[in-house]
Design a protein around this nucleic acid. Structure first.
Lengths: 329, 329
DNA sequence: AATTAATGTGGAATCGATACCACAATCAAT
DNA sequence: ATTGATTGTGGTATCGATTCCACATTAATT
């Protein structure tokens, strides 16, 4: 392996001078600079990141903790993160928790040890334990998808989006609207989306039958099950359903079709997330575009600002966009 | 930050001894070991990976280069990789090329500089330039999804899978079978899958109309377009279509439905990849499960074997599994 | 001409670990 | 009692960079 020492010898200068040229710092004569640059180019020399990190305590690596990369939301966020980070010479160290909260904590420690310059956490909860650990490791950190006091975060307007979605249904004349959510330990997807729905229903003077509100996990199958529950247990059958993710909506649609029900005539439905599939469903699914890639880019910008002690925003709320398609009428 | 020096002082031994305890190497008295271990536990000390890497030339990091993480195949592979690698204390450094061949080369260099212990390349081509660069960087490397001479690779049996898929259609009585592929610069998905189809057609004495064979890129939209081409340009209308990915199949189905055609009566269809959506389509899609996660795990095992100079297999071909659903009859 | 300031350069310490080597102490074998 | 393993420990060089500091040279100022 070729090192700074070799370059120094070949260019007939000291290692200090080579370093100065490389980092564009301190005084270097035009002559010496030229010689060093020539040798560097000829040899294709690139300084060792590890030696550099050891000395400077900077690694140019950002750790990204996520629950899975098998769904569109985190994938898109990581794509956005990667795009922005690579512009500034940063790389992503991936930590996949596979939805395991314990691993979330372990990875925070591990990334700390790896001395990443910053951490992006695509979180599914904001437990006390997690928040404590975040403070404890004392590394620049941005949370995406959940809001959290005292932590830089990029979130979506879950409450308003769901409220608007609910209003859309009501405007179309629906009064009996069902809701497929997820566990409320996920504040964003579980709690706020549900609250938006409930509040809008209440605001419009509509009552909510208990059987209309079901819960799934983050897969298609549980959307199917949730819709089954709704149809089997509701005395007063709803005419519309809001699912908090597109996959849940897809599962729900699957059950509806199996029962020979027409969408949207017998049951209107909407999801959230603007999955690629949503427009190819039958009928195309009404959904909400959250601009996940942009959220990732935004998160990257904030973590970089934080790392470089530039001004940053602690709280960023992304805009959303309703995509109204034939699954609603 | 707490270092080995601090531990040494606190435990009243030399740094060498601490290192020996930490790495379980050389002679250490029971007494000294106890003292060091106690101090380590009390302080929560963890050695700096960078200092370690600088000295040992090992980083416990595997670079993963992929074309995108927004589709299921690479996502699943990375999940499998991550699962296996993390078992052995390795982390993943992610390099997303966004389908840019140039970036593929750049990242190979970059990962080399980062001194990753190994590289996993989820490749979409096997260009000479790429192969050359792979030899040049001289880092343990495993390619997943493409086969390549002189490089450890994990592939799928693309040729046989497509051949079997074609045979399935023929057995069901189809004689006019269309094919939606991708560019043949992608040997696995483009070339071999097409060849499997062509060979089986020929083997069964069936001719292939030129208009039946169309090409798309890796998205739903181009599957739609390809099917449009087939139906508009084929004089002799096919009764079945094989698409080389589920997404292409989904696009094709979308066009068929738009034209009021029934699947599978008017057109039978099959995809490849066993996407999560495939079973929720209408009708559920016949497809091929490639066990991507397992391929990832397998790739991880090989790269680890290679790194630790243990015996490894240069060539691993994964098994596939036909999933026959209602889109074929 | 003498002093000060600006410009260049290299030596050496440092970052936090590992690993080789020398030396000490203990113990067994001749 | 001497030799020779075996066991245990610490000193020091090293990995490949950066950075501080000292020193040399040149240019600018009085």
């Amino acid at each position: 392996m070729i090192t700074i020492k070799d370059i120094a010898e070949m260019a007939n200068v000291s290692r200090s001078t080579v370093s100065r040229v490389l980092n564009d710092s301190g005084y270097v004569s035009e002559d010496a600079r030229k010689r060093v640059e020539r040798v560097v180019k000829e040899t294709g020399y690139v300084p060792s990141e590890h030696a550099k990190s050891l000395r400077t305590k900077k690694t140019k690596v950002i750790g990204v903790i996520l629950p899975t990369i098998q769904t569109e939301t985190p994938s898109r966020i990581v794509t956005g993160l990667g795009r922005e980070l690579s512009k500034h010479g940063y790389q992503i160290l991936l930590a996949n928790t596979d939805h395991d909260k314990e691993k979330e904590l372990e990875f925070l420690d591990l990334l700390k040890v790896r001395q990443v310059d910053g951490i992006v956490l695509i979180a599914t909860n904001t437990d006390d334990k997690l928040m404590e650990k975040i403070k404890e490791i004392n590394t620049p950190l941005v949370m995406i998808g959940q809001e959290a006091e005292g932590v830089i975060h990029v979130t979506y307007n879950d409450y308003r989006a769901t409220k608007e979605l609910t209003r859309l249904f009501i405007q179309k004349g629906h009064e009996k609207i069902a809701f497929i959510g997820v566990d409320e330990s996920d504040r964003s997807v579980g709690h706020f989306r549900k609250q938006g729905y409930l509040d809008e229903m209440a605001a419009q003077g509509l009552s909510v039958d208990k059987a209309w509100v079901q819960k799934g996990i983050f897969d298609i199958e549980s959307g199917y099950e949730a819709m089954k529950q709704i149809l089997n247990h509701a005395v007063n059958k709803p005419t519309a359903t809001i699912a908090v993710t597109d996959r849940l909506a897809i599962g729900a649609m699957s059950y509806l079709k199996e029962q020979g029900m027409d969408i949207p005539t017998d049951m209107a439905i909407a999801g959230i997330g603007a999955s690629e599939m949503s427009q190819y469903l039958e009928p195309p699914l009404t959904t909400v575009d959250y601009q996940n890639e942009k959220a990732g880019e935004e998160g990257a910008k904030q973590i970089l600002a934080c790392i470089n002690s530039k001004p940053f925003q602690e709280r960023i709320v992304m805009n959303y966009r309703l995509i109204i398609r034939e699954s609603v009428q």
